[in-house]
Nucleic acid binder design. Sequence first.
DNA 1: CGAATAGTTGAACTGTCTCAACACGCGTGG
DNA 2: CCACGCGTGTTGAGACAGTTCAACTATTCG
Lengths: 252, 252
Amino acid sequence: MRLILDKSESCFAMAEASAHPSHTLQSGCADCAIRRNAVCAHCDADELAQLEEMKFYRSYPAGQTIVYAGDALPFLASVVRGIAMLSHTMQDGRRQTVGLLQAGDFLGRPGRLRARYDVVAASDVILCCFRRQPFEQLIARTPHLGARLLDMAMDELDAARDWMLVLGRKTAREKIASLLVILARRAGTPHDIDLVLTREAIADHLGLTLETVSRQFSALRHDGVIILHGARHVTVPDRARLIAESGDGDNA
Amino acid sequence: MRLILDKSESCFAMAEASAHPSHTLQSGCADCAIRRNAVCAHCDADELAQLEEMKFYRSYPAGQTIVYAGDALPFLASVVRGIAMLSHTMQDGRRQTVGLLQAGDFLGRPGRLRARYDVVAASDVILCCFRRQPFEQLIARTPHLGARLLDMAMDELDAARDWMLVLGRKTAREKIASLLVILARRAGTPHDIDLVLTREAIADHLGLTLETVSRQFSALRHDGVIILHGARHVTVPDRARLIAESGDGDNA
DNA sequence: CGAATAGTTGAACTGTCTCAACACGCGTGG
DNA sequence: CCACGCGTGTTGAGACAGTTCAACTATTCG
């Protein structure tokens, strides 16, 4: 099992990262960039004030494990910036990433204290964390917060089920194309994708080996479906072509 | 694409099945066998009375499609008996089953009128259906119902993510063993499994071909991990052995 | 500049798929 | 009753997508 090493500045404790709130983020919930996608999207001023009371920021450098499966996750959180990966690891080291959390996505499950999956920062990650107890109490007395969580959970469920088709039935080339389509959609930049993920992380998400991932990137580049600038920046000349390569002809 | 034929008695309309409530089920919510697992688990007598008002039963013979992806699903429902499969189908016919709904499981998403997946009755299925509008209104004014739905959705999400490991990283043999472990757990009979699913349905759920499924059943039988009585009834002499074969050493 | 991490490419190997033949169980109709 | 057809399941042989092992290149960072 590989050792995960910090690659950036100060902190190098394993699960407890630096707790200093990130510079630009001091401003508060009212003008938070991710709010429209996050749990707190529909909260009114009063509710936001309550959230301010119970929240704190944490940041994790790329590569760091935020929490290991089975360990206590002492907070619930929204991803403010970066990508966090949820993954299963089998005893023999086989690993499957089961979710990519991006800006606005919710981490943790109310009522469950321990993490069910490893959570790893794929890039530098900033979390907006809520202390468990007050947050769960707020949910209990604020029905629309529960409704928002339900909606987000069901979106995640749909995404997970869509991904099952990718894992179970698509070829390596289709898998890569599918991932690119999804990342482009989430990023909102249809023709320019900043991968962030390493070849290995992509492989773990797609149920492939990193060598196969690399070969398929080369093949897609060779066929003119994508243009690579370095290993992690992709340009998509023809979005429809990429979608066709992903196997689902109708994927707005 | 294969034609799906009714194999049982009266009804043979495609999506609109017989609407006569099933004989034994007339009795009402109070002594409903699946209630402790269903959405309505924590409802009080008054709420159950409201549910009675908006509910009706439907039954579907094995093999029948309950609703096609993209079509309107005019109700939300609990599975009362049987197994319903949620599945994706690609244009070229590749299919992936993304969920097995069993007794107590919830079908449909509040607020979404159209089915996102094909829903097919794997066995004879009985649904307890709720009319959309009144049910969604009940959720809106009954917070604990929403909480129950959230809890069920998150359980489904965990199950879907667990299944992603099966699809992405496990061998054919491990996949079969994993399915048997899960079915045994759900059925509550650790040593006796009634498969219900055909080899093809199993293949679609595991991301394999039906031939590979058949071969792996034969291999597991040959190695003494399972005993087959006919094609769809399995005896498990040693539960721990089966779990070991499934790849996850610790799977209570 | 040198070491370490990340990515690419090649060649042989292998698990699963594909195509094909055959066996079994069951209901229908001669 | 048996013959037949049909859906379902099993088994075999060859093909192939993706893995494995290995060498090499590119990039980043001290």
